[in-house]
Design a protein around this nucleic acid. Sequence first.
DNA 1: TCTGGGGTCCTAGGACCC
DNA 2: TCTGGGGTCCTAGGACCC
Length: 425
Amino acid sequence: MKALVDADSFYVSCERVFRPLLNGRPVVVLSNNDGCLISCSREAKALGLRVGQPYFEAAGLLTLHGGEALSANFSLYTDMSARLMRTLERFAPRVQVYSIDEAFLDGGSRLPTGGEWADWASAIRTTVRRDTGLPVSIGVAPSHVLAKLACEKQAKHSAEGIGILIDPTVIFRALEETPVEAVWGIAERLGQRLKRAGLWTAAQFARAPDPLIRRLTSLTELRLAWELRGVPTLDPGDIRAPRKTIFCSRTFAVPTRRWEELREAVATYTARAAERLRAQRSEAGAVRVAIRTGLFHPDEPFHGDAAFVRLPAPSAHTPTLTAASIHALQTIYRPGFAYARAEVLLAELSDARTHPTNLFDPEDEAKRVRSIRLMNAMDRINAEYGRDTVWTAICGRGVLRRLRQANRSPRYTTCWEELPIARAS
DNA sequence: TCTGGGGTCCTAGGACCC
DNA sequence: TCTGGGGTCCTAGGACCC
């Protein structure tokens, strides 16, 4: 049996833990630059607001109903997520962290059987609420996709916040009531393709012959069908496992035509990505840089391009990676365009601990060891005294580094200066 | 005026090899 | 008219997730 634990409106709930006055009101959390909605409270959803919607479309309605929009505070959310996952580890031998706000708990000898699933799930909800302040919904079923369905279709709509899909007739009824594009892993495009072939509901999809599914879609969707039949075929992975690629990108608060500013941005994103690279003890074998102009200005000429550069040897050394990414940028930059976004991708990652020692060139090897020590020192200083305490000069302090964040809450749990203060009254 | 930032997996097709 | 058969590796792009 699998259980999916999913925090309700996670980012909004994190904010509410420290500002209970936000409870019961329409609240949204915004993406970087206060661009889009990335989390909506139940009350905000009731107003018709949706994740992904641009903020300027939602602002009026939100104000009208006494709502509030908060800038994203990822330091807070990341820390709250870690607290949530630690709490869940008390309830199952195996916890697979699937995203910042979801985890699968896997059945084991410590889990109850039969009719006790609801009690077990209920205990999890109570404990998480007490220890972290976060509301969660829980779905229990024989496979990951069914657990997700139990969570989305039943738990989220019930007062208890718990959905159980174990009995085959109950499962089948739930599948009949679920449109095929509401299945986890099937979105609009695939949904249309399946419906054109007559598969309108999750039940029809699950019962379709394998060759038909395979002809219409890929292997991924065939596995989904098996999951809906109650056979686990998916390994949802764990976000704490080492990443295979590391990505850092931003849309600029103000577009730029200047090479120097673009170079600063690319250098900065490379440094950020390299920091995460070292945190997971990896090295990158290649760097990919992409830039593009804005998407929403039809009068501005469009240009977008990407370049992939392979390094002579895998590296986690920020200056080495930066030199590669700036070289890549040089090959794609075209003067005169108003660039609105840059991306840096570190690829071909390998384990830094297995980097072969260069026995034949002791000098080169000594240089490599020194560079690792330097990077470690930089990371430790920035961890202790704040992210931008030391940085490489090419990153600059340019305008592109700043984001619009009109309404960011304090980093209540990760910054001494911003701890909440309790006063006796 | 104002539209995010991460990831994963799969497939098709091109280039190349013998 | 008729133009092999088997492989690998790489990349772009599609589709999905939160």
